[in-house]
Design a protein around this nucleic acid. Structure first.
Lengths: 223, 223
DNA sequence: AAGAAAATATGAGATATCTCCTATTTTGAG
DNA sequence: CTCAAAATAGGAGATATCTCATATTTTCTT
């Protein structure tokens, strides 16, 4: 992890200003952190000292269960907060946050800004929106995971992440995200290939029948 | 549904004042609604005109999937909001909200108060807390549902809802809530009885081995 | 470049959970 | 009080998903 200083810092502060998220300035004590792929931005179970705002890159939220299973709760993208739960709650089990790519965050020291932020309507409005979307997303994922088999959820995920008709996510990550075993994921992918929805080439999968996948994923959606 | 007027209304407004949730008064246009058990406070897919605050009673959030399955997303208790998603978002698929008991809500007409509320730091702070807890809860339920079999989740649910050592929730509701089939729920309950964790009497279940259930439910928890 | 660790692949058998069916009991509306 | 609807109950077979085991390939570290 690198903390930007001097020019490198001010460059970032200017280029990606986030002053519009706050009523009062937060530049004074703000830091700019750069994390490399696979770095832990927050270690599970350890309270962070900063409220982060992701400027560039993306990350993953993990939780480890007592039975050893690991869940990838969600992805975090640019313009999202990290550490907001700890800002709001004194007691909270902190999830692990790992950078998926090189990730640059603005880091606001909580002890400096907590009080100010909790009285800042502009900031609270932003945070409220962010949390409301998060809550809705989680609720949808939850009910979908219970109501539909992997086939549907995987089809949806493939369409969401495919780039130019090509799906090439790491199986290991996808298992954690969709909450199924490696074995089963492979099994359903093979079915998709047998049905000619996908065509495998090395470790990439080419989408051959977009409509079929779309059909499977549509079933998840309300309206 | 009944709308309280005159004395009945002012009685409630005084007895359960919620002025402390807001910086500016909201009494002027506020209504007091009473719903009977099983009434729909909000019909699925229909935008509500009010932001509700539950004063008394409790309710359930439902969503119907395209395959006909129904999920009970969560319970809503006193001192919680309903309709906050529609307050924050112009486009939103509204879930159905059904009263589980007689439920009394304060109802703030959104068109009157939206602007004011979105600039009210005190209110936004409350809402932020509320949403953060909701988001965390959903995330936990989501990952738990993927990482653990019904056995564990049911044990947890039994302990949460048992009253004086007696569990007596409606199977139908529990199925929707835990996202399993009626058949399977019965199956696991029977197992609990065979293992002597529970003892069935009519349609009640007496908890016989608290520790065994506790053990099963503890596995879900982090720290 | 070599060896270790991580990721990919696949088989085989176990189990958690579902669907469909049918019967009985309880609840609610008129 | 009566009938229909809802809730409870359990059998039987299907299937979605898991665990374990093992082999190969790729990636990372030194």
């Amino acid at each position: 992890m690198e903390i930007y200083k001097a020019d490198k810092k001010s460059l970032y502060l200017e280029k990606h200003s986030i002053e519009h998220l706050f009523s009062a300035p937060v530049k004074a004590f703000m830091e700019v952190h750069e994390y490399q792929r696979d770095d832990w931005i927050i270690k599970e179970g350890t309270r962070p000292d900063f409220l982060f705002f992701v400027v560039d890159g993306n990350a993953k939220i993990y939780i480890t269960h007592q039975n050893g299973k690991v869940s990838l709760i969600n992805f975090i993208n640019a313009k999202e907060f990290i550490g907001e739960m700890e800002l709001l709650h004194d007691v909270y089990y902190t999830k692990g946050i790992q950078a998926s790519t090189k990730t640059i965050c603005f880091a606001l020291p909580m002890h400096h800004y907590r009080k100010q932020l909790m009285e800042d309507a502009k900031f609270l409005r932003e945070l409220t929106r962010f949390l409301s979307i998060k809550a809705t997303q989680m609720a949808m994922k939850y009910t979908q995971s219970l109501a539909f088999p992997l086939e549907n959820r995987l089809a949806d995920f493939i369409l969401q992440t495919a780039d130019n008709g090509v799906y090439k996510e790491k199986h290991v990550t996808v298992c954690d995200y969709l909450g199924v075993s490696y074995r089963h994921l492979l099994h359903v992918l093979t079915q998709f290939c047998e049905k000619q929805y996908l065509q495998k080439e090395g470790r990439k999968y080419h989408i051959k029948q977009y409509d079929a996948l779309k059909g499977l994923s549509q079933v998840l959606k309300n309206k």
